[in-house]
Nucleic acid binder design. Sequence first.
DNA 1: CATTACCTTTACGTAAAGGTAAACCTCGCA
DNA 2: TGCGAGGTTTACCTTTACGTAAAGGTAATG
Lengths: 134, 134
Amino acid sequence: MSRCPHTHASARTYGIAELAQEFEITHRTIRFYEEQGMLCPQRRGQERIYSSKDRVALILILRGKRIGFSLAECKELIELYDPHGGNQVQLNSMLQKIYERRLQLEQQLLDITQMQLELDAAEQRCLAALDKID
Amino acid sequence: MSRCPHTHASARTYGIAELAQEFEITHRTIRFYEEQGMLCPQRRGQERIYSSKDRVALILILRGKRIGFSLAECKELIELYDPHGGNQVQLNSMLQKIYERRLQLEQQLLDITQMQLELDAAEQRCLAALDKID
DNA sequence: CATTACCTTTACGTAAAGGTAAACCTCGCA
DNA sequence: TGCGAGGTTTACCTTTACGTAAAGGTAATG
């Protein structure tokens, strides 16, 4: 069973080595994320079998990390992504979190463009100094 | 001396409490950054006197941190900002670092816009679920 | 003079995010 | 059948970025 009954877009599964290679991270890292409750692979005996949902979670984690989110924050992102209904209170709290994340992202955009400007200036100083050397 | 002889744009100085309040960080944090060689306050007896250069460094550190740079990376940014001449080899290595930072910032921009899209989608799901409740 | 407020140092603690090592299972196959 | 490739767990180690006492100097204030 579960062998692609109605081809639900992605019944594909992945081994740990496969994911580790694709995303250039270690096995330990992947298991660590599981310890933290961010991945939920099935088991075949001892072996972990990752679903494409796990793979998506990994993508979210790694993207979050690249822009400086903590794992706890990445976990929240995954929960936002997850379709798990919830009652009215929960939904409103999710909307609140989404709002806060958006503010944070906007601040980060400002920080990044500001930093780009400063890199430009630093580059100019370098080039000018090199110019003087000749 | 040093009492504003030719009003060099900013002979202003700052106390630790002042900076801590302005940037909403603790004294400990500021002293820690000094331990790491990122701030170089003068001393009046035991007391630390911060220059506006120190203040700029703090700004760079905090901005760097907001987008997930490590303190080591922030330190590099400060050094890029710092005008300290250097020979041809050093200048070229600085240019290389600037180039790498730029690439990283571009990746971060991609990550952020992607994440914004996902927040949009998550918000839609929340709103749709709330809609169903009514 | 004593208190209060702010500064200092030294030193140990800690959470986050994994790295690394040791030792074991187990499957396929030559 | 035996061995290697790839999987597993447990458990301790490390780095980063500070937090948190403990213990005391200094300066104004009542």
